[in-house]
Design a protein around this nucleic acid. Structure first.
Lengths: 364, 364
DNA sequence: CTGAAAGCGCTTACAG
DNA sequence: CTGAAAGCGCTTACAG
């Protein structure tokens, strides 16, 4: 059996087929092979030579070694998409959108700090990859700083962070305001906010905008200390159970959750505690996760255009990279020395309120 | 402003810091720099030289170029994790587990055919990356063949596919059997299966095992032609609405769904059509998605240990790669010439039935 | 303890 | 139309 296998496919990792193998098999030089596989042969290589080379490429299963190609061309072919969580479908959709916009030109590498260590280590690992740029969703300011220092970077959904790299934001402030108006219209006067940890900028804006519009409508945003958890239905469920008495005591008739995932946990806690939704308590979230139409009652939420967000950011990054390659972009008057790319406009994507079954008229 | 910025960080993509820059700054050779940054200096470089080099590395922000390093060492440092869907949280958890097991030693690249083109194109793109190996979840046989031909490969959740690369499977047959017993015990005699497209091996096994155990218990698996959809709650919802009359007419009292995602769509359709769950119709799924405890009624389902699956597969792949590097592994007697790695045992992970609110005694 | 040199597998002027 | 040669940024014997 051992001898019978001596001429089968080589072990991966060694003896892979190189351009030189194809060249000698086809009786040409490696220059010619390179020209052919890169489709740069027109007017430079005879058609039948091309055919011969191609035949050998197919027969031997030759694939250009990316490491060598990058080294030779000096080109960076990869782009990193850094998101805070892999298991959150929202970021999955965003990543997908980004990959759709960038996938043709770049190898897209997904990086998820939650798998590894701290932000800095993540970036260090990425830097060795000859990255052409990075897309970072809801980053910590630390991560952002390290990353944007030496890489074309586009930031997603990080409202409020002044100056810095170009961004694509969601109009979360407007979404929160719409939600507040909706609740005020339904007669709610005491509303609580289910906060998320870690508290990134986007969450702070949701919270602040909600409070502001509520105040405009004569309603109060009631602070419930323990109504806070990680972005995870299980953790939210625990926190919701723990703070339910306080919520009730405070006379709250509606809870706005930092994310739909928090709302799932709260909805369950309400069911377990016999708190009727929405007749006793209205519940709403942010994101419009694919499943939010399927929980019960179905969830009123601020819908974010996830794919669009990813796609738009992908386009902007491609732009940024193209400029960088062309030469130093002109710095706008506000462009500090820290970010060569601040001249690019920040885009803000509209969001919309989706009213479903979990919100209704205030009790009493 | 322009002149003030002339000595700031170089534009990414050109003028990145090389070992030679560090070497001349520290007054040593690039060999020495290499030794230091790779921690191979003990007994070979003077301690104060090491310190000097490190200082320059920090000051200049030098990071080893991975492309060059790989080219020089011949080492493959990346592993691909190929899953059918990015937006399905089940695969997200699996990917995470795999990354946890492999992340230290390898750069993990996630590949999602749904973003790009056909399986073969996906693999071709990956092949240029000097991959050390691949992890493929629920692959099409075509993808599997191309991939396993020249790469150490571990397959996830592809029961039934005889021979071939080593696998880590879930005991879906047992899970389906448990579910069937549960339904029979509840008095169900006419059960339908909500099929998934594309119909991979794992779905076929779920279906077949369910039918077999149902028959053992004296119950029938009723075929409903249009009760089939992609793995997506929206698609499932549409299919469920369309086939609801047929399901009712057939006297079906329980529907087992190929995945929890199908169940979400079905649950919603039931609610909209006034079909009470579980009193009129029991519903169950496979996966135990994080959200399945949060739909209403909460979903009875076969729980898959997603992280464990990913982690175990990651470990096996690391093993496989280590063997390949060490030399030709001894072929077991059953080891066909097509797969050098079939000597590795296939692992089957146990699954468990989680009974929640969506299943109950059969009506009538 | 240190450095000059070969080589990893490509691409790209350049010379024929 | 074709090929020899330099160079991309590293690592690793090898010789001092």
């Amino acid at each position: 059996m051992t001898s019978a296998t001596s001429d089968r496919e080589p072990i991966a990792g060694r003896a892979r087929v190189r351009a030189a193998d194809v060249a000698s098999a086809a009786g040409v030089s490696i220059s010619t092979v390179s020209l052919v596989v890169n489709d740069k042969w027109e007017g430079r290589v005879a058609v039948d030579t091309v055919a011969r080379v191609r035949a050998e490429v197919d027969r031997l299963g030759y694939v250009v070694d990316e490491s060598a190609r990058r080294l030779a061309t000096g080109g960076a072919a990869a782009v990193a998409v850094v998101t805070p969580a892999f298991t959150n479908p929202f970021y999955a959709r965003v990543s997908l959108g980004a990959a759709a916009a960038l996938g043709e030109a770049f190898q897209v590498v997904f990086s998820v700090p939650e798998v590894g260590d701290d932000p800095v280590a993540t970036v260090e690992r990425l830097r060795g990859l000859r990255l052409a740029g990075a897309l970072v969703a809801a980053p910590s300011s630390e991560l952002l700083q390290v990353l944007a220092r030496d890489l074309p970077t586009v930031v997603l959904d990080a409202p409020g962070s002044a100056a810095g790299p170009p961004r694509v934001d969601l109009d979360v402030a407007d979404g929160a305001a719409q939600l507040a108006s909706h609740l005020v219209d339904l007669g709610h006067r005491r509303v609580a906010f289910f906060r998320a940890t870690p508290e990134t900028e986007t969450f702070r804006v949701r919270h602040a905008s909600l409070a502001a519009r509520l105040a405009d409508g004569g309603a109060d945003l009631v602070a419930i200390d323990r109504l806070v958890s990680d972005v995870d239905p299980g953790a939210a469920h625990v926190a919701a159970l723990a703070s339910m008495p306080a919520v009730i005591d405070a006379g709250v008739t509606a809870v706005v959750c930092a994310t739909d995932l928090h709302a799932y946990g709260l909805l369950r806690a309400c069911a377990e505690r016999g708190v009727a939704v929405p007749s006793t308590m209205s519940v709403a979230g942010f994101d419009d996760q694919p499943l939010s139409a399927y929980v019960s009652p179905s969830l009123t939420t601020v819908a974010f255009p996830a794919d669009e967000l990813g796609r738009e950011a992908g386009r902007m990054l491609a732009d940024l990279i193209a400029r960088g390659a062309g030469g130093e972009p002109a710095d706008g008057p506000g462009g500090g020395p820290g970010h060569r790319s601040s001249a690019l406009a920040t885009r803000v994507l509209p969001v919309s309120l989706v009213v479903r079954g979990s919100t209704g008229p205030a009790s009493r």
